[in-house]
Design a protein around this nucleic acid. Structure first.
Lengths: 140, 140
DNA sequence: TATTGTTATACTCTATAACTATA
DNA sequence: TATAGTTATAGAGTATAACAATA
């Protein structure tokens, strides 16, 4: 029963290792991590605002502003005026963003996909179950 | 049994969320993530070289060189000549590094520790088991 | 006053490239 | 030639602070 503290240290270490490994695997033409998360979220959930996206992705609104500006510059998202609040801008995928999203889902994280494919089914289940738990932790 | 691809996408999303949440939680006086990993590793495994640490932590030797230089500047690690190869430098914890390591283990990741403490025991087991799997994936 | 977003600036972490010293 | 490490430079991602516009 003991060692939750020790296990937490190991969990953080494992997270760091995996994140750095995934970063190394990312091809040059690829989207950044937060960029890909935003593209995916807009694709699933539709238009949103910078403040809302920042809250959902656990970054400051200014940071999300920079991310959105980069995506906008790349032509992957576009702005549309908010119907009732002129302070806000609704961010939505452009046609290129919609198209890219398919490619991203197919091609990105190919390394992780393939590495996970070599795990035991039971380990895979554990990993995916932990993914849900981590998402919940991250938002608590 | 389907959806491994979908689950992989969600796993990456969860990793990103949790990493950003942990980053936000890190106090200003705290060690960076890789720095803490190096301190922990030196504490557990004893002296090591820059190239070895880079390999173990999944970064380039130059990047690890910068990390070590920062830790050295902070007085947390020190160099000692390699007994037989004058190209290499053995990096070891200083007295301050040893002392800090205890504090780091006690105080760091306090938020994660407490969040994990509120999980079901079964979820905690899943999370820690996934930690081992992720560490293995990261090194494969 | 509070909220949304922008601009300016800086820090952390990591990368690539070119170099020196040693093996 | 190959390996260990350093130096120089750059980029991504995020932060804080100060500001403008709108509610």
């Amino acid at each position: 029963m003991p060692r939750p503290r020790h296990d937490t240290e190991e969990l953080v270490t494992a997270l760091g290792l995996l994140v750095r490994r995934l970063r190394a695997e990312r091809a040059a033409h690829d989207l950044g991590w937060t960029e890909a998360a935003v593209i995916g979220r807009l694709g699933r959930g539709g238009a949103s605002t910078i403040a809302e996206l920042a809250r959902l992705e656990n970054v400051k609104p200014q940071s999300m502003g920079a991310t959105i500006a980069a995506l906008e510059e790349a032509g992957l998202v576009q702005r549309k005026p908010h119907p009732s609040d002129r302070r806000q801008a609704l961010i939505e995928l452009s046609a290129a963003g919609v198209a890219l999203r398919k490619d991203v889902r197919e091609a990105k994280r190919a390394w992780l996909q393939q590495a996970i494919g070599r795990l035991d089914p039971a380990e895979r289940d554990t990993l995916f179950a932990a993914g849900e738990i981590m998402a919940r932790l991250a938002q608590s």
